[in-house]
Structures are given as structure tokens and as C-alpha cells.
Computed example of a mutant assay.
Amino acid sequence: MQPFALNYARPAVESDATTPYVYDCGLQLNVLRDGRVAARDHSLLRELGTTVSTAGSKTHFDD
């Protein structure tokens, strides 16, 4: 029996955009290249509106 969600699952689309932050699995936060927490950079948040990552998917197996 196939789970219902697999009928609608699609592969992730690769984006050409680059983000000024990366996910730090040790901190479980997005960090800027200089090591600062991305969510504390107010100019970045004004520009992007959010700092989205796949953090939940990497830390929770039931997502």
C-alpha cells in the first residue's frame, strides 16, 4: 500500500538563487558567512523577509 502523500510528492526544484546564509547543524540555525545568526541581521530580514531553510527536515524524521 502506497501512502497517500506519495501520490502528490514532487522532486525539489533547484533554485539558481544564492542565499547569504547557510544552515549550521551544530547550532540548528541559519548563520551568515561571518558566523552571525541570520535571524538577527535586520537588514537581511528586511531584504528577504525570512531566513528559510530545510532545518526542520534535517532534524525531524517525521516531517
Rank of each mutant, 00 (worst) to 15 (best):
T54P: 00
D34W: 00
T50E: 15
A12W: 11
M1D: 05
V31W: 02
R10P: 01
T18E: 15
G49F: 00
F4V: 09
P3M: 04
D34M: 03
D16A: 14
D24A: 01
R46L: 06
A38R: 00
S15Y: 07
L29V: 05
S53W: 04
D24I: 01
M1Q: 05
F61T: 08
K58H: 08
V22K: 09
E14F: 09
L6H: 15
E14R: 14
Q2Y: 06
A17C: 03
G56A: 06
G35N: 03
R33H: 05
A17T: 02
S15C: 05
R10M: 11
P20K: 07
A5Q: 12
C25D: 09
D41T: 07
L45A: 08
V37Y: 03
A9R: 13
A5P: 05
D41Q: 03
T51C: 11
T18W: 11
F4M: 08
N7G: 12
V22Y: 11
L27S: 08
M1H: 11
R36I: 02
V52L: 14
S53N: 07
G49N: 00
Y8H: 14
S43W: 11
A38D: 07
S53K: 03
N7C: 15
R40K: 13
L29E: 02
M1K: 08
G35F: 03
R10D: 03
V31K: 01
E47T: 10
A38W: 01
V22A: 07
D16F: 02
